[in-house]
């Protein structure tokens, strides 16, 4: 562990749904400028953990520290005010509206306040273009509708929007899962560029071991609601990663199991 204070640290996080224990004492530290891959099988507790971090759920026990200060997120609004931006799989975009209108949806730059404030469309177009270019996509026409963009470009739009509006921690929920090979690479490049900005921490939830090895600096493995392994990239062998992702089972074990069928 580095001695820098993590942007987000969780200690002994527990979440119970009635008799079911979703998370059982999870510890995690997220550093700025790092990609932290959160790996684990279905049902390991990944989504519960990110829902707590983004303020959707409240923990049963344990503490979240933001910049070392213990913090309570009562709602998603609290979390985004603390600089945590979550990019969900459905991305929260309007397909028929333009890129700019999506980028600024709900936070339009206007002359005059209130709903009848007049949008400064030129300025909004320019910012949208510049912010997306910063993380690698040059959209020639910010007035094109989001429906005409590729899945990878849409991810970039959602990420650029979160960063522009103050996210210091980006939670990416399986950003590559629904995409084709080439677009997956686009998204990984985007993640790289965001990491290159240096001041933003990324929590990457993924099922894909190869993708996590390509971009992650640090790994945390969850299984049945507990952390079963954590470490920096250079401390872990890809064989370990594969074993831990499967919840501790070796790939050789899996092959053996398959052979029995």
């Amino acid at each position: 562990m580095t001695d820098k204070e993590p942007v987000i640290r969780v200690e002994n996080l527990c979440k119970k749904f009635g008799p079911f224990t979703a998370l059982n004492g999870v510890n995690l530290a997220i550093q700025a400028g790092e990609v932290h891959a959160l790996l684990g099988d279905n049902g390991a507790g990944k989504s519960t953990l990110i829902k707590i971090l983004s303020g959707v759920l409240q923990p049963t026990d344990g503490t979240i520290f933001v910049d070392g200060v213990p913090t309570n997120f009562r709602s998603p609004r609290d979390a985004s005010a603390a600089g945590i931006g979550t990019v969900y799989q459905d991305l929260a975009l309007s397909q028929l509206s333009s890129v700019t209108r999506n980028f600024f949806l709900g936070r339009e730059i206007t002359i005059g306040s209130g709903p009848f404030g007049v949008m400064k469309i030129k300025e909004m177009d320019r910012i949208t273009h510049d912010e997306m270019q910063k993380i690698g996509i040059d959209i020639s026409d910010p007035t094109q509708s989001v429906g005409t963009m590729s899945g990878g470009q849409r991810q970039t739009l959602a990420i650029a929007r979160a960063i522009y509006f103050g996210a210091r921690v980006l939670i990416l929920d399986e950003p590559t899962s629904a995409l084709g090979q080439k677009q997956q690479m686009e998204v990984l490049k985007t993640i790289r560029r965001v990491r290159g900005l240096g001041n933003i921490a990324i929590i990457l939830i993924t099922h894909n071991e190869i993708h996590s090895q390509l971009v992650a600096d640090r790994y945390t493995f969850l299984s049945l609601g507990e952390v079963i392994g954590t470490g920096a990239k250079d401390e872990l062998e890809s064989r370990d990663i594969r074993r831990l992702m499967a919840g501790g089972a070796d790939i050789a074990d899996l092959a053996e199991e398959l052979a029995k069928v």
Binding site: S94, S97, R101, L105, P115, F116, G117, V118
Partner: peptide
């Protein structure tokens, strides 16, 4: 032109 216009489109779309 207005913020409200953007909201109207977004409300119907998603």
């Amino acid at each position: 032109r207005t913020k409200l216009g953007n909201w109207i489109y977004a409300t119907g779309d998603n």
